[in-house]
């Protein structure tokens, strides 16, 4: 009942964001190794290896195709990891939210801060991939920098559903279901590795309801310096997921903590 009232986050969100930035700064070494290591492996291993067989895909070198897809998918997985494992840790075993809720901050502020942090982490992952991709010479122009705010938005979009998961599970094991049933299928089917158009029509329709295909549709032309097709539609889809995700997350976390 009261849990369903509309959220109203304030500046407290930035304080929560700052908390997470401070923790990240302490572990910046391992974090950056991961951020750079993963795209290097994918782009060198998959991109160069497969790329030499494939040549061009979607009117661009395969390495460009893959790098742009990975920027979108990595923004997704980064935010999803943060919104599940890290948020759950702070919410339940570590009881960090309980401590924060004894101050003037509310669930609304905490989750807005967490979502912003997911966005920032997704942005960081995009920077890493972009740097690696540029060094490999597959980024077409400075326009590619526009992918950074898009990566931030992708982070927000996937943070909500991940936090929703955190608010309903009883332990970490359940996150495997989310990963196997939601995130991994999206990763494989949403046009990161090959164009969606090669799939059966039904699958294409399903994939187009899911956010990752829209994320890819925004990022890829920016990296390859091609014309964006229906950018407002794609941004709108990501925004709708963000808003609904945030709202549901706030309602469910209130239910879990304010009892």
């Amino acid at each position: 009942m009261n849990d369903w009232r509309l959220p109203s986050a304030g500046l407290g969100a930035l304080v929560v964001l700052r908390r997470n930035v401070l923790v990240w700064r302490k572990l910046i070494g391992p974090a950056l190794v991961f951020n750079f290591g993963e795209p290097i492996l994918y782009l060198l291993g998959l991109g160069l290896g497969l790329g030499s067989f494939i040549g061009n895909m979607g009117e661009m070198p395969y390495l460009t195709f893959l790098a742009s897809g990975l920027i979108a998918s990595s923004a997704m997985t980064t935010a999803s990891f943060e919104g599940t494992y890290s948020v759950f840790t702070r919410m339940i075993p570590q009881r960090t939210y309980e401590a924060i809720l004894a101050t003037p901050l509310e669930v609304d502020d905490i989750l807005a801060g967490e979502m912003l942090w997911c966005g920032v982490k997704s942005l960081i992952s995009a920077v890493a991939i972009l740097v690696v991709a540029s060094l490999l010479g597959v980024v077409a122009s400075w326009n590619a920098l526009w992918t950074l705010p898009i990566a931030f938005l992708i982070g927000l979009c996937f943070a909500g559903p991940a936090i929703v998961m955190s608010s309903i599970v009883s332990n970490y094991d359940f996150f495997s279901f989310y990963s196997v049933l939601v995130i991994t299928p999206m990763f494989i089917l949403s046009g990161v590795f090959y164009p969606i158009e090669t799939m059966p029509t039904l699958l294409q329709t399903i994939v187009q309801v899911l956010p990752l295909s829209h994320a890819v549709a925004l990022v890829r032309p920016l990296v390859a310096n091609q014309v964006l097709i229906q950018p407002l539609l794609h941004v709108a889809v990501l925004l709708v997921y963000t808003v609904i995700g945030y709202y549901l997350a706030v309602v469910l976390v209130r239910r879990r903590l304010i009892v």
């Binding site: 009881r95 960090t96 309980e98 003037p104 901050l105």
Partner: peptide, 22 residues
């Protein structure tokens, strides 16, 4: 039950809490 922030030191815990109160 104590719910100190395990990611931070003693003084950082206090600084952080001060920031929640702005």
């Amino acid at each position: 039950l104590d719910n100190l922030d395990p990611d931070f030191s003693v003084i950082e815990n206090l600084e952080l809490y001060a920031s929640y109160f702005r």
